[in-house]
């Protein structure tokens, strides 16, 4: 039985073989808000479930391991309980799951590459929509993305971990994704809005914005793009997209304390008219 998810207007078809119906049902429920109808040209991925040894021996002393590469249109992926591939020339892929496995990390990697093909970026960042204005808050792990997301629940929180930015008709749009970080209870909101600003996060004892030089902004934003940066051509593309963003979109450092007062700073925030 197939299901088709669509994130940032990019559809991917998932079909299941030899999978426990409970796993299938769990995956459908997980991506419920992102399901869509069949359409032509959709990347098709077959998910197969099979018992066996982990693909990478689990090691609790290290960070979560994901091995991925992309060469000549073929994306390879391997983690503890998942091994997958995508062939972009054939527009299909496969994912082998162990019983403990979950397709989410594989889908994160696949979408990182699919985004780049469309000059879009999957970014480690929190995303919030306030009054149909999209805000992106980026930074390294521990910079406060989850804290800020928890403090923004009176607005539409897209994610505390990953969002997609995509250029459309000379404007940039912010898209929600079904992927979560340390805030799993947040709703998986399939929403989008025009992006009005990107903010590097810095924890502080008060709320204020500080200028961020364009070069620093590009470097810090590019450093938040996962999975693709070790491929030189992809990294070059990422820098170019980030540079385009920095030219047309305000990027500042948001210093914020542990209360939602930072939204007062952002309430008056206006996007610089695009020169594109």
């Amino acid at each position: 039985m197939d299901m088709i998810i669509q994130i940032a207007d990019i559809p991917v078809s998932l079909s299941f073989a030899d999978c426990d119906p409970a796993i299938h049902a769990r995956i459908i429920e997980h991506y419920q808000a992102f399901l869509t109808q069949p359409q032509d040209g959709t990347l098709s991925i077959q998910i197969r479930c099979e018992s066996g040894a982990p693909f990478i021996p689990p090691d609790i002393s290290t960070t979560w391991q994901i091995r991925t590469s992309a060469h000549h249109g073929r994306i390879e992926f391997e983690s503890y309980y998942e091994r997958g591939w995508v062939d972009r020339l054939e527009n299909r892929g496969g994912l082998l799951l162990r019983p403990q496995g979950d397709p989410e990390n594989f889908l994160r990697v696949v979408y990182a590459w699919l985004c780049l093909e469309q000059s879009a970026l999957l970014i480690h960042a929190a995303g919030v929509i306030q009054n149909e204005r999209g805000f992106v808050f980026f930074g390294h792990s521990g910079s406060g993305k989850t804290t800020l997301s928890r403090l923004s629940l009176n607005h539409t929180v897209l994610s505390d971990d990953l969002v997609i930015i995509k250029k459309q008709n000379k404007t940039f749009r912010l898209y929600g994704v079904p992927f979560r970080g340390d805030f799993p209870e947040a709703p998986r909101t399939n929403a989008a809005a025009e992006l009005v600003g990107l903010f590097a996060l810095s924890k502080s004892d008060r709320h204020y914005l500080a200028p961020l030089a364009q070069g620093d902004a590009v470097a810090r934003l590019a450093a938040c793009v996962p999975f693709v940066m070790t491929q030189p051509l992809a990294a070059q593309r990422v820098i170019e997209i980030c540079s385009d963003l920095a030219r047309h979109m305000p990027m500042q450092t948001l210093h914020f304390a542990r209360d939602n007062g930072f939204w007062k700073v952002l309430d008056g925030f206006e996007k610089i008219p695009s020169a594109a």
């Binding site: 364009q214 070069g215 940066m229 030189p232 990294a235 070059q236 540079s243 920095a246």
Partner: peptide, 25 residues
């Protein structure tokens, strides 16, 4: 290096290290 990605942005060189994907200015 052929594996290096780089761009000068507003007078600042942004460089991605090939092996790690680390971004430097």
């Amino acid at each position: 290096h052929s594996q290096t990605a780089a761009r000068i942005v507003d007078g600042t060189a942004v460089i991605v290290l090939a092996d790690t994907g680390e971004v430097n200015v």
